[in-house]
Design a protein around this nucleic acid. Structure first.
Lengths: 217, 217
DNA sequence: ATTTCTTTAGTACAGTTGTACACATGGCGG
DNA sequence: CCGCCATGTGTACAACTGTACTAAAGAAAT
């Protein structure tokens, strides 16, 4: 393979390789060397483009969460009626939810990381909020929250015990949650517009890590 | 500290220390050496009592899942009416669900491990089944499954966004799932009695690992 | 053309890991 | 009492880790 002297996609390729590796071997089994091998870059590129393992993980998970959220929002927005939205929810639980086994693993890995290290918690939080907002396009905020939880639970449980004949059960559960909105509580806090991932708050875009280290600021 | 020549609780202490360590630093950060230090046993004891890291993890998670399931079952069984059972469900979601942050982390770690390695999957599966059976004591099997998923989802989401003012929302969700049983589907598969953890299928009790290695049988 | 700087590459280092194994120790059956 | 053997211990080893650092190589600017 020819030497590529300038390779603008390097960073991207590294991030993608990282996600693949985490899906395959978990955060635990992910190392600079393995990622480098998978992305076909020398080991040195790792520390050049990313200040450390944590930054790499953070960026990889940001990309993953954004990707899933985008897909989720797109699907919800495609529906034009409440009935269509409801069908979309059932469909997502049934067919994939997290896309595939890789996505489930990545999701669980991210949750675990967030549960342990506060540093990663905002990623999970933003992600949760985005899907809830998507639900709120059609449903009452409280119902959106209930629905979000149901989707989460059913998806995880279905992943460990896949069944293809339980569409009725899933659909029925969604129906019941939608049937009537909670009456005692008013629709609280009519949130302000869209929430974007707070990516820009952290060691921002494509400023190579080494230069930062060298010049000291 | 005096040398203990015979220490019958060693294995137990090691397993407990392993759980503590996983909760604190994750499966990734768990090593023979750290566990040994925490349990106050020499490094050699690790390989003497357990054939390898996987066996240690497996036994630790078996104990954890059993403990959670026991608690869960006990709580459900304490209820004598459906109403009480429903209250118990709400209570569990609200107050702890997984007991504490440690338990949540352990749960997520186990899920992740199971999602990746088939070897650990039966643990998660048995666990899920036990809690579902507990629900089935009071509720229709399908509803039990829906409820189980709701509890899972709400617990996880609440862990990342703790609120104390959402009891009404939680209670309302449970109510809705209970309100009416699914009509089209008959109550399927009236499962046979209790399911116990299949612990005995794997490298059974307290036969020291080294002897197995040595004598080769 | 020569200097300046970003990017790429290779390698070295100190630390940690899982596991094996040789040795010590004491309880117990004979 | 002896000797066997389950149990407990310390250490060594090879493999792997994250990260830093020296060079080189080309791009951009002068």
């Amino acid at each position: 393979m020819a030497k590529r002297r300038v390779d603008p996609d390097r960073r991207d390729r590294i991030i993608e390789a990282t996600l693949d590796l985490i899906a395959a071997e978990g955060v635990a089994g992910t190392s600079h060397r393995k990622v480098a091998a998978l992305a076909d870059v020398p080991l040195g590129s790792m520390t050049y483009h990313f200040a450390g393992m944590d930054e790499l993980l953070h960026e990889a998970f940001t990309r993953f969460a954004t990707r899933i959220s985008d897909r989720f929002e797109r699907r919800m927005n495609e529906a034009s009626t409440i009935e269509a939205a409801k069908d979309a929810v059932v469909e997502m639980i049934m067919e994939d939810t997290y896309g595939d086994r890789d996505a489930l693993v990545l999701t669980l890995e991210l949750y675990t990381l967030a549960a342990r290290q506060a540093k990663f918690r905002h990623l999970t939080h933003d992600w949760m909020m985005r899907s809830r907002r998507a639900f709120e396009r059609y449903f009452d905020p409280d119902v959106a929250r209930q629905l979000d939880a149901l989707v989460e639970g059913l998806s995880i449980h279905r992943a460990f015990e896949p069944r293809d004949d339980d569409r009725e059960l899933v659909s029925n559960a969604v129906d019941k949650l939608l049937r009537e909105a909670p009456s005692q509580r008013a629709a609280s806090s009519p949130v302000d517009a869209s929430i974007t991932f707070s990516d820009e708050l952290h060691t921002t875009v494509s400023m190579p890590a080494r230069r930062l280290r060298r010049s000291g600021g």
